[in-house]
């Protein structure tokens, strides 16, 4: 009970502090600094519900779903299995920041690293909310929706296949996360499911939240520092427009569920292939996601992942520009 009392008093103290500070008046920070903070807070506040949802789903998978149940219902053939995993997002529609804790939970539950990567890449694109919002924004015009769905599916399975050939998949993970998956905690096994759930929430929050905070502040700094006009001026060139959209996707770190609405106003300036590249790359690789994925994968793994995904997204964009 003492712990609960500390928690209640701590939360009450935070509410009191939050309620009192506006009365102290404006700080009159320089505009650029104030906007940097507003942009960073926006990323954190927008991501929080998805992170919590992702952790809760991860808890359900790890603690409450019977062992090996998910593993058993998936096909045994590795290729078919990864293809099936690509569509898990249809049943677990969490945007990309929520998928990181969920993917960690799937590895802990018995997925191979390559299978978890397939899920991590495919789920933010192949999920009902993303499909509906992309269709609302673009319909079937210029093949943008089709390119996004097929592109996301193809890249997810390509990455899964490449890393399934790796002789030691565990070496792709950070040593801390690999150890967490490897070590059988005898004390934890004796605990109730409720206690396990709370422990898992605390552990995942301890890993994901610092990464989210640091990713958000870096995204804010880059957004304040890079003039948007530089990117927009490149819009009509078939190659440069794709590279500009890749930079924008990397910087903006926007949620895949609504990125189609964000990019819609750019459709009059940028070629369709570059829009498709933005919609494929953004949910997989951006500043915030790299910071969050670093909690799980080694830096060298993320460099390889970024290179392959960027090249594939650019190639798909070029094809769409050529065909559309």
């Amino acid at each position: 009970m003492a712990g609960l009392l500390i928690g209640v008093l701590g939360i009450a103290g935070l509410f009191t502090l939050r309620a009192l500070t506006p009365a102290m008046g404006e700080l009159n920070l320089p505009n650029a600094l104030q906007d940097l903070l507003t942009l960073s807070y926006s990323v954190i506040i927008e991501s929080l519900p998805f992170v919590i949802l992702g952790i809760v789903l991860s808890i359900l998978v790890q603690v409450w779903v019977p062992d090996a149940w998910i593993i058993r219902v998936l096909p045994q053939n590795p290729v078919l299995r990864r293809m099936a995993i690509s569509f898990l997002g249809m049943f677990l529609p969490v945007c990309e920041c929520g998928n990181v804790p969920l993917a960690r939970g799937l590895v802990a539950k018995g997925f191979t690293v390559s299978e978890s990567m397939t899920f991590l890449i495919a789920a933010p694109i192949l999920n009902p909310i993303t499909i509906i919002t992309t269709h609302q924004a673009f319909g079937f015009d210029d093949g943008i929706l089709v390119a996004r769905l097929l592109g996301g599916f193809a890249i997810a399975n390509l990455i899964g296949w490449i890393y399934s050939r790796h002789p030691d998949q565990e070496s792709l993970l950070t040593s801390r996360f690999a150890a967490e998956c490897r070590v059988v905690d005898a004390a934890a096994a004796r605990r109730s499911n409720g206690r396990k759930s709370v422990d898992l929430f605390a552990r995942e929050a301890g890993v994901i939240m610092p990464a989210l905070f640091i990713g958000a502040i870096i995204a804010g700094i880059v957004q304040v520092a890079v003039p948007r006009s530089v990117l927009v001026s490149l819009g009509s060139n078939p190659l440069w427009s794709i590279l500009a959209m890749m930079v924008l996707a990397f910087v903006i770190s926007i949620c895949s569920n609504v990125d189609a609405f964000f990019i819609l106003p750019f459709a009059g300036i940028f070629l369709p292939g570059s829009i498709a590249t933005f919609l494929i790359l953004g949910p997989i690789i951006d500043i915030k996601m790299l910071a969050m994925m670093r909690t799980t994968f080694r830096t060298s793994t993320l460099v390889q992942l970024t290179a392959v995904v960027s090249l594939m997204a650019a190639l798909i964009g070029l094809v769409v520009n050529f065909v559309a």
Binding site: M1, A2, G3, L4, I6, G7, V8, G10, I11, I52, A179, E180, V183, V184, D185, A186, A187, A188, R191, G194, R195, V198, D199, F201, A202, R203
Partner: peptide
């Protein structure tokens, strides 16, 4: 979940310190 974390993991009478020695086996 935050309040449950305080209740279960920070309670001096609880088993947090003991459990922590076993967490992740480290």
């Amino acid at each position: 979940f935050v309040l449950a974390s305080f209740a279960m993991r920070a309670d001096p009478g609880g088993d947090d310190d003991h459990d922590h020695d076993h967490d992740h086996g480290v």
